[in-house]
Structures are given as structure tokens and as C-alpha cells.
């Protein structure tokens, strides 16, 4: 089984972002960037399937600026075999990302594509589902467990009331939720080895995909600030305030 894992370079999970004073976007200058956490889970799952003998090859693909190469190297250090970088400095929307990935899928013919359920910058939660639609493949989103078998894959999904299990024909798309696995840290020898693994470089033009945004960003603003309230000394005082000041308890 061949597995494709798209990965995205985003602002590191621990960074407190700042909105630019002119409201044109979020200030990304000199901010630490990392692989999107849900993409790490996707890479980990693919590598585990390879270690279990289920997957024969794991390919990491990223769409973004030249520095996305580092994100691919991280995936390679975790155990992916080779990388593909589709280089663009444009802000590419999920639908165009899905179209580019469709091009990669058609060229590579994977049996399974594992993606993060959402990137923590745009919080869109769209790309996997869109790729599934464009390919006419089934989708198993928000996966907490996957069981590939001959010709199909069982996916346990995190849904609002609990868990749902579905069975998908292969090839299929899976998007990862938090509990699917705990991604490994790449070891130093594996980081060194990853430097020698091949990364193929492409552009959106190679796939004939127009990446012009269809959504116009008018402005990006700070959310309304919530003022800190008061400290209470005792539980008794807390209950009194909730009843008589806030009026939320009767």
C-alpha cells in the first residue's frame, strides 16, 4: 500500500500570534514555524503502517514557500521515504490545495491519503474532504483509529456524541483527529538520514492549477478583549456573586 501524506507549514502551536496594526493579516515575521500538529499525526500514522508492513511507501507533500522544504524534511526524519514540494508564495485556499493534491494523487496513485483534519492557522477543516470529492473517493474524517484491510479500510471517527465506525472502499481519504496517535520525535540519526532523502520540486503551473484566491480578505482584526474580573476569596463568596451579582444561579 502506497500512502500520500500532505503536510503544512504553520505558525508553531505555542506561539501567541499578533494581528498586524494595519489589519492586513497576522504578523508572521520572525515567528517560529512548525509542521501543523494534525499533519504530524498523519505522518506518524503512515509511518506506523509502514513499520507494521502494511504500507510500502510513504510520500510527504507540501504546498507553500521554499521553507516548506523544512516541513517535508521533518516528515522524512519521522520516517517518510521521499518528498514533493509544490512551491508557491501565494496564499493558497483549500480548494486550490485540493486540486494540486489531485494532480499529485493522479501522478503517484496512492491507495490512501492521510491528512490532518485542519490546519491551526486558517482553521478551515476542508482540504481532505475536498480532495475526496475531486477524486470521487470516500472520506473518513476526524479519525481516532484506522484499520486497513484488503480493498477497504475501517475508520473510527470522533463525532459530536461519541465515536462512529465506517468502512471505506480503497483508495480513500482519511483525516486525523488528536487521539489517533502520539507523534514521535525524530532522532538525530534519522534527521541526518532525512537530509539524503529526495525531494521533488514542482510548481502549481506543473499541475495546471490556478491558485488565485476566490475569497477576498477585507481585514483581520483582534478579537474583542475580555476583561479579567475579580478574585473571590471563598466558595461562599463565589456562590453569592453568581447568585446576586451575575444572576446566573438561582
Amino acid at each position: 500500500m502506497k500512502i500520500l501524506v500532505p503536510v503544512k507549514r504553520v505558525v508553531d502551536y505555542n506561539v501567541k500570534i499578533r494581528v498586524k496594526p494595519d489589519q492586513t493579516g497576522v504578523d508572521l515575521a520572525n515567528v517560529k514555524m512548525s509542521m501543523n500538529p494534525f499533519c504530524e499525526i498523519a505522518v506518524e500514522e503512515a509511518v506506523r503502517l509502514q513499520e507494521a508492513g502494511t504500507a510500502t511507501e510513504v510520500i510527504a507533500v507540501s504546498i507553500g514557500p521554499a521553507q516548506s522544504q523544512e516541513t517535508i524534511r521533518t516528515a522524512l526524519a519521522m520516517g517518510a521515504d521521499r518528498g514533493i514540494l509544490i512551491q508557491t508564495d501565494a496564499e493558497v485556499e483549500p480548494l486550490a490545495i485540493a486540486k494540486l493534491l489531485k494532480g499529485v494523487v493522479e501522478a503517484e496513485s496512492p491507495d490512501l491519503v492521510i491528512l490532518g483534519k485542519q490546519a491551526i492557522d486558517g482553521d478551515n477543516n476542508q482540504t481532505g474532504q475536498m480532495l475526496a470529492a475531486l477524486m470521487g473517493w470516500p472520506q473518513g474524517t476526524f479519525a481516532s483509529e484506522i484499520k486497513p484491510e484488503a480493498g477497504h479500510i475501517g475508520v473510527t471517527r470522533e463525532i459530536d456524541g461519541g465515536l462512529q465506525t465506517i468502512k471505506l472502499n480503497l483508495p480513500a481519504i482519511v483525516t486525523t483527529d488528536l487521539r489517533l496517535n502520539e507523534p514521535r520525535y525524530a532522532s538525530l540519526p534519522n534527521i541526518m538520514k532525512a537530509k539524503k532523502k529526495p525531494i521533488d520540486e514542482k510548481t502549481p503551473e506543473d499541475f495546471g492549477v490556478d491558485v488565485t484566491p476566490q475569497i477576498e480578505i477585507i481585514k483581520v482584526a483582534e478579537p474583542p478583549v475580555r476583561e479579567a474580573g475579580v478574585k473571590v476569596e471563598t466558595v461562599e463568596e463565589l456562590v453569592d456573586k453568581l447568585k446576586n451579582e451575575a444572576g446566573v444561579l438561582s
Partner: peptide, 16 residues
């Protein structure tokens, strides 16, 4: 719509 876990609010116009 919120982005970055609600740490920024985007105003967007869609012409599709």
C-alpha cells in the same frame, strides 16, 4: 470568521 483559534477575526468577501 475566526482564524488562529479565535486569536484573530477575519472579515471576508466571497464573490463566487
Amino acid at each position: 470568521r475566526p482564524i488562529y483559534a479565535g486569536n484573530a477575526i477575519q472579515t471576508v468577501k466571497v464573490s463566487s
